[in-house]
Design a protein around this nucleic acid. Structure first.
Length: 115
DNA sequence: CGATTGACGTACG
DNA sequence: TCGTACGCCAATC
């Protein structure tokens, strides 16, 4: 349809809701969010939603979303420097070469903790 | 409205 | 174990 439907909850908004629930100092992955929303194979869309999150008036902690191995793949979208890394470190995380240390311990799975 | 895109994930060599 | 190739799916242009 050319005319957009009056969906009150787009996929992006669903992603935002989950991201906002990530506790400070914890991180999750794009795939985990995608699976939580039921579309396990649309993890790429989650990243895209993050890209769109800076347009949102809400404060989306997009820096708490990394890829499945704990690498800050989206850091380039946060600013010219290491803004994403700085935000995470400020929350108590340890990062080395864009890799989150003890990622398994810091990992927050919406499918487990939020269910 | 069709083609392109993309901050991923999994499979395969 | 590491690097490369492809599939996914919804928003954007």
């Amino acid at each position: 349809m050319v005319v957009p439907t009056n969906k009150h909850h787009s996929f992006f908004e669903e992603v935002f809701e989950v991201v906002k629930l990530i506790p400070p100092g914890r991180v999750t992955s794009y795939g985990a969010i995608a699976r939580y929303l039921g579309t396990g194979k649309s993890s790429r869309m989650v990243g895209w939603a993050m890209n769109s999150s800076h347009s949102s008036t809400e404060n989306i902690p997009a820096h708490r979303v990394v890829n499945r191995i704990g690498v800050l793949t989206g850091k380039a979208h946060f600013g010219p420097g290491k803004e994403m890394e700085m935000l995470l470190v400020n929350e108590g995380l340890e990062i080395e070469n864009d890799q989150i240390k003890n990622f398994k311990e810091k990992y927050w799975d919406p499918n487990v903790d939020l269910l």
